[in-house]
Computed example of a mutant assay.
Amino acid sequence: MAKKVTLKQIAHEVGLSPASVSLVLNNRPCRISEENRRRIKEVAAREHYIPNQIARSLVTRQSKTLGLIVPNIESRFFSSLAKNLEQRCRAEGYALFITNSDGIPENDVELLNLLVTRGVDGLFLVVSDEVSDNATLLEELSNLPVPCVMVDRVVNEFTCDKVMFDHELGGYMATRYLLQMGHRRIACVVNASKTLTGRKRLLGYLRALRESGLETDLSLVVESEYYISSAYEACTEVLDSDATAVFASSDNIALGLLKRMHEKGKRIPRDYSMVSYDNSAADALFEPALTSIEQNVGELSMHAVGLMMRRLANPAVDPVERVLKPQLVIKESVASAK
């Protein structure tokens, strides 16, 4: 292993003080000649000098690191979000620590503390549970010494920068499309008990039915967490119903339903039409390609990082809440009702 080169060693070789070398390598204003600047950078490059970020942070009071908490890193949507956020943070000169809460609210609090003690300059938070009693989380958020941007899932009771898609509109668009294709018995498999996003998607489903003059049949509303295994179990209720179409409120839910349906000899769209949500995973694993509500992860991460950079530049600015519009991507999983 090569020995780490220090500022003192570079300073000794060029015959200048460590303070002068530090100013040049950190691009700080100084009265050092162009020749000496060139020599310092030449030696630093030759010796593969790596700045000590910990020492630098003691002076600047910035670690140039940010933290991200997601509920399920195995989800294609959240892994794609993490990747996009990391790339955009890196472009802004920040490293991103990515953590996973496993969808457990207590882990949100633990990870907030962990990341703050690691000295991050700010936090991106996708909360585990938006609808239960969030007293502990709210208290923790209220005492955070760094900015927090809530992404995708938000807690209404806490005021901070937030960016999310219009989940109610997404549920409405998915259900309306199935209705337009002639389906009247449409199952909705949704995580409405633990997430506000699920509740909003369910509200969109109900609005589309109501506008079509259909009575709401709650037996067609099936609860499932955003895990393939949970949807696999929930599929029994769909198969036992008289539904001809399904609104699967996440790609993970869609994958669980498809797995169980395939085992039972059911095919999409021959036996059931399906609209999924996220447009992030199913095409790579199943045929036919799923019609889906797309949440553009690049757009979501762009706004999240933009809000964070704005907040870091000026901590006193008013909080912003941005609601983005999803899109219906039509593929091959919906057939006209028979």
Rank of each mutant, 00 (worst) to 15 (best):
residue 137 L to T: 02
residue 104 I to M: 09
residue 133 D to T: 04
residue 146 V to E: 15
residue 154 V to G: 03
residue 126 V to H: 05
residue 170 G to N: 08
residue 132 S to Q: 12
residue 171 G to E: 08
residue 115 L to R: 11
residue 157 E to H: 06
residue 112 L to M: 15
residue 106 E to V: 07
residue 164 M to F: 05
residue 147 P to A: 01
residue 147 P to Q: 07
residue 140 E to V: 10
residue 108 D to L: 00
residue 118 R to A: 12
residue 141 L to S: 02
residue 123 L to C: 09
residue 131 V to F: 04
residue 132 S to N: 12
residue 161 D to N: 15
residue 101 S to C: 02
residue 103 G to K: 08
residue 153 R to D: 01
residue 161 D to E: 12
residue 140 E to F: 08
residue 115 L to V: 04
residue 112 L to E: 14
residue 141 L to A: 02
residue 116 V to M: 10
residue 143 N to P: 09
residue 108 D to M: 00
residue 150 M to F: 10
residue 151 V to S: 13
residue 111 L to G: 00
residue 168 E to V: 00
residue 120 V to I: 15
residue 113 N to A: 04
residue 154 V to H: 05
residue 159 T to H: 14
residue 112 L to F: 13
residue 135 A to P: 00
residue 158 F to V: 07
residue 150 M to L: 13
residue 117 T to Y: 10
residue 151 V to M: 11
residue 126 V to A: 11
residue 131 V to S: 07
residue 111 L to H: 01
residue 139 E to P: 02
residue 109 V to W: 08
residue 154 V to A: 01
residue 158 F to R: 13
residue 139 E to I: 00
residue 154 V to P: 06
residue 145 P to I: 15
residue 138 L to W: 06
residue 113 N to Q: 12
residue 149 V to H: 09
residue 124 F to E: 04
residue 127 V to G: 08
residue 118 R to E: 14
residue 107 N to Y: 11
residue 124 F to R: 09
residue 107 N to A: 04
residue 162 K to L: 01
residue 110 E to F: 09
residue 134 N to C: 06
residue 129 D to I: 05
residue 148 C to V: 15
residue 145 P to L: 15
residue 114 L to G: 05
residue 109 V to T: 13
residue 136 T to G: 00
residue 116 V to I: 13
residue 128 S to H: 02
residue 124 F to I: 03
residue 157 E to K: 07
residue 156 N to Y: 03
residue 119 G to L: 03
residue 141 L to R: 03
residue 117 T to M: 14
residue 118 R to D: 10
residue 128 S to K: 03
residue 159 T to V: 15
residue 169 L to S: 05
residue 150 M to A: 10
residue 126 V to T: 11
residue 136 T to E: 13
residue 99 T to N: 08
residue 160 C to M: 11
residue 126 V to R: 02
residue 123 L to N: 07
residue 122 G to E: 09
residue 100 N to S: 10
residue 127 V to Y: 05
residue 165 F to H: 09
residue 164 M to S: 14
residue 162 K to V: 00
residue 128 S to N: 05
residue 147 P to F: 02
residue 160 C to G: 11
residue 147 P to N: 07
residue 170 G to A: 03
residue 118 R to N: 12
residue 115 L to M: 14
residue 115 L to Y: 06
residue 144 L to C: 12
residue 128 S to Q: 04
residue 158 F to K: 12
residue 107 N to F: 09
residue 132 S to L: 09
residue 106 E to Q: 14
residue 121 D to P: 02
residue 113 N to C: 01
residue 142 S to K: 14
residue 115 L to W: 08
residue 145 P to R: 14
residue 150 M to C: 08
residue 117 T to C: 09
residue 172 Y to G: 01
residue 123 L to G: 06
residue 99 T to R: 01
